[in-house]
Amino acid sequence: MDRKAISEKHLDAFKETANIGAGHAATALSTLLNKPMDMSVPQVDLVPFEEMNERLGGGEAVVVAAFLQVEGDVTGSLFFMLSLDGASSLVQELTSNLEEPLKTPPYSSMALSAFNEVGNILAGSYLSALAEFTKLRLYPTVSQTVVDMAMAIVSHGLIAHSMHSDYALVIDTKMTEKGCDKNKMNGHFFFLPDPKSFQPLLQSLGVQLDG
């Protein structure tokens, strides 16, 4: 993929689509937690590999991440990531558990499994909204949850990109609890569509790749 082939117009189209998906995912999360969730307008960029680490919080930021692959007309990787503290609060809320299950290792497998389920649900609503809007087929694989360095986790999703380019199209949506300043539950929804999916995705939005 040539980086120049992707213009501002294309990024806007991606942003529009992601906004719809993220809206549905935020609603799903609100329902799960029974409290209103806010989400940012998605940030859509072509990020060079060498800047990816900074983008993920730099250093050796450790996160809890649910990862799944997208299959169908559009393929790619989807990550739902939270800091350890954030994931801990999320699981706490969800299970009404008073302990902080993901604060320190060994991490409770029940807590990780609950987090993974949240990942599944959010990804499902994100993708089904996208599918409905674009009339494309998008299926999530079952998600897997790991606790590790953000960079190491996301690099896994970059392998598909790395065969074609040194950039990744990153669609990043932040999710936060509404009206809560000191926000712990600061989640990121990271969608990395594979380069070969740019064309069908844009086409479905009525935007041409070379124009």
Binding site: F49, E50, N53, L56, A152
Partner: peptide, 20 residues
Amino acid sequence: SMADLKMTTPPMKLRTMGLG
């Protein structure tokens, strides 16, 4: 960085982060 290569000599150290 990722997909990067660097050379050095003492007293410098080489570091790469987040190898998956």
